[in-house]
């Protein structure tokens, strides 16, 4: 038996520490540090899990990559008929199909990423109960799977714009920024939901409903300009408003990217994401006991 003193030596004087890093495993109370450096160490695993998800997705579905085109294309057609033609929803001078598709692109990236990430942790319990890696990798990998679909659908948009004789302006260079904001939004909410989902399986059933409500609270089928000005600040709290407006501005050169609204979007994402990361870190310790 070791004496109390010998066991209490600090980690840096631990025998094994001469060449190896020493980790201390102990009960956790209060705020758990994010340990983003450890996450960085596992970046290859993140890549491989993403790669795995993409492969599985395209191997399991009969139509494979075609889904990436079918989904936004048909939604756009329905929107064009229902809102554009029957509803006569204005599209700020842009042909309605392009107008809608341009917003559907980031929307579908977001909603797919949100659903995938929210269900990611409970999808494969063995990853949780049989092996260790930073659990945040799981929702993160799920988020990025939709990027492959996004890339394909993007080509369709370019074709559509070409058909209507539209050319993107220099503003198109800001597109990665808006894409990143869409992903960050999905991650922010996805991290919360994936952790809550472990304890409350209701999340799975709430998701389709949530994503439908969110779609109508985002100017995808309609322009932001028809929203009464006094409501706009409230709208700006929804980061997807910033994303959709950003996409339209970057691709169609329509409207402008109001810096204030974008700052609000980014701030909201940052707050939700930070809270989500800490919540996830706090609850991930009990994942293995619960999934």
């Amino acid at each position: 038996m070791m004496s109390q003193d010998a066991l209490a030596i600090p980690a840096d004087r631990f025998d094994g520490a001469r060449e190896l890093p020493v980790r201390r495993i102990q009960p956790v109370h209060g705020l758990v540090p994010l340990e983003l450096d450890e996450l960085w160490d596992y970046r290859e695993l993140l890549y491989f899990l993403m790669w795995r998800q993409v492969k599985i997705r395209y191997k399991q579905t009969a139509l494979g990559i075609a889904w990436a085109i079918i989904q936004p294309l048909f939604t756009m057609l329905i929107f064009s008929v229902v809102f554009g033609r029957f509803g006569r929803v204005p599209s700020d001078g842009v042909p309605y199909p392009v107008f809608a598709f341009c917003a559907l692109l980031p929307w579908q990236l977001f909603s797919f990423a949100l659903t995938e990430s929210a269900n990611s942790v409970i999808a494969d319990p063995r990853l949780i109960t049989k092996v260790y890696f930073p659990r945040l990798i799981i929702p993160m990998a799920a988020i990025c799977v939709g990027l492959a679909d996004f890339a394909v659908a993007f080509l369709v948009l370019l074709a559509l714009m070409f058909y209507y004789g539209m050319l993107p302006t220099v503003a198109v260079l800001t597109l990665p920024l808006w894409t990143l904001l869409a992903i960050a939004t999905a991650l922010a909410v996805g991290v919360w939901l994936s952790a809550v989902n472990v304890r409350y399986r209701d999340v799975r059933y709430t998701l389709p409903f949530l994503s439908q409500l969110w779609l109508f609270a985002t100017p995808v089928a309609y322009p932001l300009s028809i929203v009464p000005p006094q409501w706009r600040p409230v709208f700006a709290l929804n980061p997807m408003v910033g994303v959709v407006e950003g996409f339209r501005w970057a691709l169609l050169g329509h409207g402008s990217a109001p810096p204030a609204a974008i700052a609000v979007s980014a701030a909201v994402v940052l707050v939700v994401l930070t809270g989500g990361l800490y919540y996830f870190r706090r609850t991930e310790l009990t994942f293995a006991d619960m999934v």
């Binding site: 025998d15 020493v22 980790r23 102990q26 009960p27 049989k130 260790y132 310790l285 293995a288």
Partner: peptide
Amino acid sequence: KMLSRITAPTTGYAQVAGRV
């Protein structure tokens, strides 16, 4: 499972050197 960090201990601690 505790040593491999899959689940956190309720009491005590362990020091582990190197990659597990």
